[in-house]
């Protein structure tokens, strides 16, 4: 698997895929996409990078342990439900904030935050599984 061509292009491919995954995540509310798909794309990127360049370099690249990323995602998702409580609405009622920024309409919302949480959960968990399985090849 570790051909020179694969090893050379893998980092760029992975970077591109992660960029694409963020794009898919953010357009998810209006076009096909969303946290689940984005997370899977990013996890695949990490898996490819891991196969090409070794798991150790992936772990270095993402700094945090993948399960920590996953837990962080779950934390964000839970957090996204809380603002509605302040407004005396039931948990997870969506809240929206729209403003203009350099002539672009920007919509910030709690469902988006929630979707970002989903993204991190999927990236973290799937990458953790994939990396753990790849790692065992070396021992």
């Amino acid at each position: 698997m570790r051909t020179i061509i694969f090893r050379t292009i893998a980092p760029y491919l992975a970077a591109l895929m992660i960029l694409f995954s963020v794009f898919v995540l953010l357009r998810g509310h209006n076009e096909p996409g969303g946290g689940f798909i984005g997370g899977l794309i990013a996890a695949s990127a990490l898996a490819i990078y891991g196969i090409a360049c070794g798991v150790a370099s992936v772990r270095r690249a993402i700094v945090f342990h993948p399960m920590s990323i996953s837990a962080f995602g779950l934390f964000i998702a839970v957090l996204a439900g809380l603002p509605s409580l302040l407004l005396k609405q039931s948990y997870m009622t969506s809240q929206w904030l729209s403003f203009r920024f350099f002539d672009v309409n920007v919509d910030l919302s709690t469902p988006m935050l929630f979707d970002i949480g989903v993204y991190f959960v999927v990236v973290g968990s799937i990458a953790s599984i994939a990396l753990a399985l790849e790692e065992r090849e070396s021992d």
């Binding site: 999927v122 799937i126 599984i129």
Partner: peptide, 8 residues
Amino acid sequence: VISFSFLA
């Protein structure tokens, strides 16, 4: 996604 996690 869940069935995949489960399979893993």
